[in-house]
Design a protein around this nucleic acid. Structure first.
Lengths: 212, 212
DNA sequence: ACTAGTTTGTACTGATTTGTCTAAAAACAG
DNA sequence: CTGTTTTTAGACAAATCAGTACAAACTAGT
């Protein structure tokens, strides 16, 4: 609940996305990872695999191999670490989806490419559901997870909203809502049933409703 | 991790389902609720609204208005309380769905009745997603949530599997998988976007795929 | 009324939680 | 080299966690 007692570091979430090549970025890529990066990597792994609430900062610190003080020097507390963990998840996942969508030709193929991205995600052995759904499940009202999850949801709706707008259908917004349901259903089903084929099932449904 | 040190009570989960009318059942309905029932009611409310991990047993006890010892007399520990909480959620939800399905005429209407049940669920102001999805999100491997969630998932697949089997389609099992995705998508979308209309959207999609 | 089963209130343990503090070493920039 | 920033290791506090122990009181069946 208390801010930094020392000065704040200059690193930002942009550094993790490889979109901005300033001097600090190049320097961090060539040198060994900073304590901040090690902490974010450890938090990403532990929070996602075991749940945010179930993982104490001691385990994050131990996993990262850094000193306890480094956490509170680079972050204002666990809530801040949670927020940055979710921002990183958001950036990496949207990057993967945008990449696949960009490669596809035409709005219909771009929509189906989203479900191909889900299929690749579900095939990863470490898949344990949507980080934002899981975070909201254990979040208290107005917790650090709220804004990050809302940000992710607006991205998801905009993704399908933009793609269906280029489709020759009578009601693109309704179609976007339907695609969001297919997306959410595949994500949840793959987690609960441990069946990666949910992506293929959802993709089949998606191709049905965008073709009709 | 330790069993009962005193003798174990004779009440079972069946008593909460109103399916078995023995003498104990009638007695419990007419008298004031037992500490066990108060504890289950408090755990149901707190675990669902705030997350299992985030709620300590002290808050459950305080909310139930019973003594600390009553928890460990009626349950073997928090894990046991979690298990009973999820069993109760399972019984109540499947009861509500089965009731609506039973009232519908014909397999197609019965399938759509499931999504009507979801619509009624999402309209409740206390809706906060699927208790089993939320529980798994914060559960550790082989925790008390695992079996309850698996039990619920097999019920869900059997529900749509049985209903699609009575439908004149070429591949009822594939259709059942698709309906599960619509169900999961509505459940997750209604939670993440706080929009009860996800049930109607999923129902529209369901009627499309079972009509074709 | 007697007895067994149940509930209560409180105190207590031991482990774990997030977060603070300090002093010294290390890395870094001008 | 000099001075600032960052990292380290560890001790420490205050709160909370699940669970145990125990004695007294209450309830219900016979």
């Amino acid at each position: 609940m208390v801010g930094h007692s020392r000065s704040r570091p200059r690193a930002s979430i942009i550094l993790d996305r490889s979109v901005c090549y300033d001097r600090d970025m190049v320097a961090q890529l060539e040198k060994k990872p900073s304590p901040r990066q090690k902490l974010l990597a450890a938090a990403d792994e532990l929070f996602y695999n075991e749940g945010i609430h179930a993982v104490g900062i001691d385990r994050v610190i131990e996993r990262a191999g850094v000193a306890r003080g480094s956490l509170y020097y680079n972050f204002s507390g666990k809530d801040d670490l949670i927020k940055e963990y979710l921002l990183g998840r958001h950036a990496r996942w949207t990057g993967r989806v945008d990449e696949r969508v960009a490669k596809a030709n035409g709005p219909a193929e771009k929509i189906l490419a989203v479900f191909d991205a889900l299929g690749a995600l579900f095939a990863e052995p470490s898949y344990r559901g949507c980080a934002f759904v899981n975070a909201i499940a254990e979040a208290k009202v107005d917790g650090p997870e709220t804004h990050a999850a809302a940000h992710f949801r607006s991205w998801l709706h905009a993704l399908f909203g933009d793609l269906t707008a280029e489709l020759p259908v009578e009601n693109p917004l309704e179609l976007a809502d339907q695609l969001v349901i297919l997306y959410d259903g595949a994500v949840a089903g793959a987690q609960m049933d441990s069946s990666p084929k949910a992506a293929a099932t959802a993709k089949t449904l998606a191709s049905m409703i965008i073709g009709a």
